[in-house]
Amino acid sequence: MRLKVWGARGSVPAPGPEMNRYGGNTSCVEITLASGEHIILDAGTGIRTLGLDLTSSPHVNILLTHLHLDHIQGLMFFPPCFRADADITIWGPASPEASLEDRVARYISAPLSPVEVRELPCDVSFRDTPPSEWQLGSATIRCEAINHRGPTLGFRITDGDTTLCYIPDHEPALGTVLADNEPEWISGYDLARDADLLIHDCQYADDEYPLHVGWGHSGMTDSLTFASRVGAQRLLLFHHDPLHADGFLDDLHAAARRRWAELGGDSASVEMAREGAVLDVEPVAAPAGISGA
């Protein structure tokens, strides 16, 4: 699998010269499967530039973890939405309250938008994520509810013998001590276990987290502890706080690498998501991950 980060920011776009290296666009990751098909994870503002890159007659699957604005804001500016030859399937969490289409349409409708979903020239369909595994191209997809504010999913994508897990908004340490908790009681554990690459929320530095407990995001050490507990082989820290400029994220990255090494891991296997970055995800031979830390 090949992954490209089109937006790594959380909460709200954060443009500006001090954000240039990590980028200011909100959550969007493109996965290219071994078979050549594409899956798009979330539709933050990063999806706009992704859409400019797509070839003619695109058929795209977009997996939405949840419907907070930083994960759907780019949809209305996704160029294929305005192409009659585009076929777009949007997957997202089910709700007893309203269909996925109706919930997304609260954003793509007046007065927030000049167009309505029904006016989009593309062929767009909305699908609730199924409770069991399903196939998209050569990939097997599984999702689970994880701890964030409001109904939110994480995704586990397996293509051949490679597995990627995407949990961009997650606070698994809320009300518990991650390092001590039994695995079956850790939000997202089964979804992320033994992943070759874990893309995980790291919105806050450790000294920022106490002021944001319950906001649905993780501090750096909690992100690393979660990755360590699930045995992730490689970790991509994601969903950067909009206040965190490049220099701050450089320092956070250095601190994360030191902490990961303290936990017994290879510091090079912790990376910071950066807009435009391309990563090849390959199976990592055990025991590269940290076990039972």
């Binding site: 689970e144 994880i146 701890n147 079956e184 939000s187 276990r193 991950g289």
Partner: peptide, 12 residues
């Protein structure tokens, strides 16, 4: 990696 019982649902 650790052995685990079946993952509990998020609400539990």
């Amino acid at each position: 990696m650790e052995r685990m019982a079946a993952q509990k649902p998020l609400e539990l």
